[in-house]
């Protein structure tokens, strides 16, 4: 009897050791490119290429400094690119939270004709990948009307290309966000609305004062799930923004990379735009993890 138990404990310990070894090996696999990137961004080009042959590739040793970072700022308006990306991301996420949660509220808590059909259509659009509509949409936005400020006059013109709004407006409404809000809101008891109605509250007040404060987790999930794609936008701004001052960081980096083979500076640029996201992720990792998990709950 005791022998059996001992061997079982032994087996269990054995298994635990192995799973730690496996996880550690995988951790190395997932982290080594990023460590290599950060470390290389601190080294002169010649040293990066010689260090590659040994473990020195992953260690901040030798001629370490921030010269590459200074070089990036000298060569391209990377501060401007960062500002553009922050502006676009904040507006997509912020306006998206308002617009999509209102839609989710209307779809989950209000009675109106066509509601079921609208909800079904919104869900159906989830199957359309953005890549399908990207090319026709460039054509479409190039025909849309716009107002331009020209020589002290507000003029009516056509074409949304090369602007901030072309990077923002198409991505505010999001079928998946609407779906998540609708689902979350419908778990909140309807009796709350009824009580507020009896007290004379209007629907918008119910939305603002009752539902929004109760739906913190849904707002956090949607914010996180829309933040990453907005920050990482690439295909769309590549096509609709040619003007350098309006470029977001990702497209700015691709242009920088094409013109430049000084790997130290390229690594400095990639580190520069990866660090803020990593900091945000590590500080909110619990929320990130539960948001991603929530996105998969209903297929």
């Amino acid at each position: 009897m005791t022998v059996v138990i001992q061997s079982e404990q032994h087996l269990r310990r054995h298994r635990r050791v192995w799973s730690y070894v496996t996880m550690a090996a995988l951790a190395v696999f997932f982290l080594f490119p990023l460590v290599f990137m950060f470390v290389s961004s601190l080294k002169p080009d010649a040293q990066i290429l010689t260090d590659v042959t040994s473990l020195r590739a992953f260690l901040p040793v030798g001629d370490i400094g921030l010269d590459n970072y200074a070089g990036v700022f000298d060569r391209v308006p990377v501060g401007r690119f960062l500002f553009n990306s922050v502006l676009v991301t904040v507006l997509i996420v912020g306006l998206g939270l308002i617009v999509n949660s209102m839609c989710g509220f209307a779809l989950s808590r209000l009675e109106w004709r066509g509601r079921g059909l609208v909800l079904a259509l919104v869900i159906a659009t989830l199957i359309v990948p953005f890549e399908t509509i990207a090319v026709p949409m460039v054509y479409w936005v190039s025909k849309l009307p716009t107002l331009v400020w020209e020589g002290g006059l507000l003029k009516y013109d056509f074409g949304w290309l090369n602007s901030y709004h072309v990077q923002i407006v198409p991505f505010i409404a999001n079928a998946f966000s609407i779906f998540l809000f609708t689902q979350y809101f419908s778990t909140i008891p309807k009796s709350l609305d009824e009580a507020a109605r009896i007290d004379g509250a209007g629907w918008f007040t119910i939305y603002r004062k009752i539902i929004v404060p109760l739906a913190g987790p849904a707002f956090a999930t949607v914010a996180i799930l829309t933040f990453l794609p907005a920050w990482n936008q690439y295909l769309w701004p590549l096509m609709v923004v040619q003007q350098e001052e309006l470029r977001p960081v990702m497209v700015g980096m691709q242009y920088f990379f094409q013109l430049n083979t000084a790997w130290g500076e390229v690594m400095a640029y990639t580190s520069l735009i990866t660090l803020p996201v990593l900091v945000v992720f590590l500080s909110f990792q619990r929320a990130f993890v539960s948001s991603v998990a929530a996105s998969g709950v209903k297929g």
Binding site: N100, M102, C103, V128, P136, V169, P170, A173, G202, W203
Partner: peptide
């Protein structure tokens, strides 16, 4: 009646944007 109207009004900003930047581009494709 007010509920129906409010429902449509609150849903419409998102629905109009989806129409403009999802449905129309699909039809254009």
């Amino acid at each position: 009646r007010r509920e129906r109207r409010t429902g449509l009004a609150m849903a419409s900003p998102a629905l109009i944007l989806l129409l403009l930047f999802l449905v129309i581009p699909v039809l254009l494709a």
